[in-house]
Simulated scan of single mutants.
Amino acid sequence: MQWDDLRYYLAAVRAGSYTAAGRRLGVNRTTVGRRIEALEEAVGIPLFHETPLGHEPTRQGAHLLETAARIEAEVEALQARIAPSVQHEGHVRIAGSGGIVAEFAAELLAFQEVMPRVSVELLGELDPLDAITYRRADLGLAIIRKPPRRMAGIEIATMSQARYGLRGGKRARQLGWGHELDAAQPGQWITANPSGDAAEALGLTTFNSWPQMKQAVLSGFGTAKLWCFAADAEPMLERLDEPDPRDDYPLWLIHRAKAPPSPALSGLIDYLGKALAARLCDQTASRASSS
């Protein structure tokens, strides 16, 4: 059994396909397949089986995966001791509920200044759970009560929503969420504003992502319930009522439970976990002290 074969197996599980793994490793899919076949021959067992969600590690493959992840961590730790100037490298795809990930561009920029060899791709996905399940994303910024069992993650902070409008602007026009977001996030945090059929029945102008809705309110299009941590930081916006606790939702950083995070992903999770918690909790404390 060779470490390089284990490394290719880790990459295939994390990426979700030989093609995607090859892209990350800088080789073609045939090379990835050949390496994993060699590993299966060396251990004498199949490492993948077919599931409704695609290929997943077998039970024995999951045990091997845990060992491979520990070896990888030891190699990374050794490299950090003998060559501390060598940085992690890799590529991480991020999806956020309703496009909320765009709100944290400053934190992502700060991360890339610390780890410039880790490239970050922001996806236009509306549902991070779906994107991670089907391996389109590696990391999700998910506005959910609790992650499903197939996901692992950390809870960052609870976010509140309140109604906002352009300072000095018109108040009559209410805005809502569109059918696309209503289908992607049914019955969840979007219920703070009318959505889908309900919004259409009211004749509302609707939007299908957080950046669209926030910009619409900033442009004086109308009023809507927005995330307080972001809207309170906009001097052009005015809060029109107090948050309703029923609209509160936690923000989670989530990833696939069955795929050990790569060093690049682990580094991003550690960084964002601290940076986002600091931002959200600081703003919550500031609002409490000023009220």
Rank of each mutant, 00 (worst) to 15 (best):
D4G: 11
L6M: 07
Y8C: 14
Y9K: 03
Y9M: 10
A12D: 01
A12R: 08
V13M: 07
G16N: 02
T19N: 11
T19Y: 12
T19D: 10
R23Y: 09
R23P: 12
R24H: 08
L25Q: 12
N28R: 07
V32M: 10
R35A: 09
I36W: 00
L39H: 01
E40K: 00
A42I: 03
V43S: 06
L47G: 03
F48W: 10
H49P: 06
T51D: 04
T51P: 08
L53T: 10
L53Q: 12
L53I: 12
G54A: 06
E56G: 04
E56A: 07
H63A: 15
L65S: 07
E66P: 03
R70D: 10
E72G: 02
L78A: 14
A80M: 00
R81W: 13
R81H: 09
A83P: 03
A83N: 11
S85D: 12
A95E: 00
S97V: 08
G98Y: 01
E103I: 11
F104V: 10
F104D: 03
A106N: 09
E107N: 11
L108W: 02
L108S: 03
L108F: 07
V114F: 09
E125L: 02
E125V: 05
D127K: 06
I132M: 00
T133N: 05
R136T: 03
R136D: 10
D138G: 08
I144M: 07
I144K: 03
P148K: 08
A152C: 09
A152K: 08
S160H: 13
L166V: 02
L166F: 03
G168P: 01
G176E: 00
W177Q: 13
H179F: 12
E180W: 08
P186S: 09
Q188A: 15
T191H: 14
T191Y: 02
S195A: 15
D197Q: 15
A198H: 07
E200C: 10
L202T: 07
T206D: 02
N208Q: 13
M213T: 05
L218T: 04
L218S: 06
L218I: 13
F221Y: 04
A224Y: 01
P235R: 04
E238K: 04
R239D: 10
E242L: 09
D244S: 06
P245S: 05
D248F: 00
D248N: 13
P250M: 06
H255C: 07
A257K: 09
P263Q: 14
A264C: 01
L268A: 11
L268K: 01
D270F: 02
L272V: 07
G273S: 04
A278Q: 14
R279H: 06
D282R: 05
